[in-house]
Amino acid sequence: MKHYFFVLSALVCLIASNYALAGDGKLLATSGLVQIEGSGGGGIVPWATLSGYDTQDEISVSAVMTQVDLDDYRLNVMGVSASFYDRVEISAAHQRFDLKQLGGDIRQNVIGVKYRLYGDAVYSNFPQISIGLQHKKLEDGAIADLLGADSSSSGTDYYIAATKIHLGAVAGFNAVWNVTARATKANQLGLLGFGGAQNSDHEIMLEASAGVLLSRNVAVGMEYRQKPDNLGLGEEDWIDYFVSYIPNKHIALTLAWAELGSIAGAEDQNGLYLSINGQLW
């Protein structure tokens, strides 16, 4: 699995290069971003929206680079995703979790698939609904083993998400909300393995996002992600407060303040989240 991220990234680009259709048919900012596990969505939450601007006769390919710089840790993410005909998304992400105080890092690869079941986030009366999965593979499970994870190799999250964009809903500004239910047993995204002494089965965790587009190019909001405490180390839920600048359909910049709580016993892990999203075509 070590090279799966790079293999899938190349495959995504190869498939897309066989088509002349660029994904640019949707309204600016309505495709959302690419989150830290590579799926289309917000920063920490996958949404029902797909990662590109493609309509029913288009495809799109997007890339992301993200860094979350905390007191004792640093998360770096590189990802690529492709959206086909506004129906299916495939994605790959490589995560490197730097241990700033102890030295060294933990690396994980994530492969994702999402399928739009119903609706359009902008134009349908009810929210857009999508289902998806994220398969996660640790490159080195030594720390997960040391902490007592039930599995130090791999695990899969399953989710269903609902997203709605309301045009002119808040004092004339566009508003967006998302709710996601995730079945997971991942410890800190899977970076600390899967399951543990407290629980070794999938649990349902709730996630949510809400934001307002202050203009065509600027969005502000917050996100929440519930997380299991399988290892008994006091793993806490995540919150971020973000501002995104989207000058055009080719690039989006996001700055956020992330409050990630306790990580592996280190309390109050807060810091800046910076992400650059680019639509390649």
Results as ranks from 00 to 15, higher is better:
M1Q: 09
S9E: 13
L11Y: 06
L14W: 10
A16L: 10
A16P: 05
A20K: 14
G23K: 01
L27T: 14
T30K: 05
T30A: 03
S31G: 04
G42V: 05
P46M: 06
L50R: 05
G52L: 07
T55H: 12
V61F: 08
A63R: 05
V64L: 14
A82I: 03
S83Q: 14
V88Q: 01
A92I: 09
L102T: 13
G104M: 05
N109P: 09
N125P: 12
S130C: 07
H135L: 09
K136C: 01
E139C: 03
G141Y: 04
I143T: 02
A144F: 00
A144T: 09
S153T: 08
G155E: 10
T156K: 11
Y158V: 07
K164P: 10
I165F: 03
G168L: 04
N174M: 02
V179C: 07
R182G: 00
L191Y: 04
L191P: 00
L192H: 05
G193H: 02
G193E: 00
S200F: 11
R216G: 01
M222Q: 13
N230A: 03
L231W: 06
G234C: 00
E236G: 04
F242E: 00
F242C: 04
V243T: 14
Y245S: 11
A252S: 13
A258D: 12
E259N: 15
L260E: 08
S262A: 14
G265M: 05
Q269N: 08
L272S: 13
Y273W: 09
G278V: 10
Q279C: 07
Q279P: 07
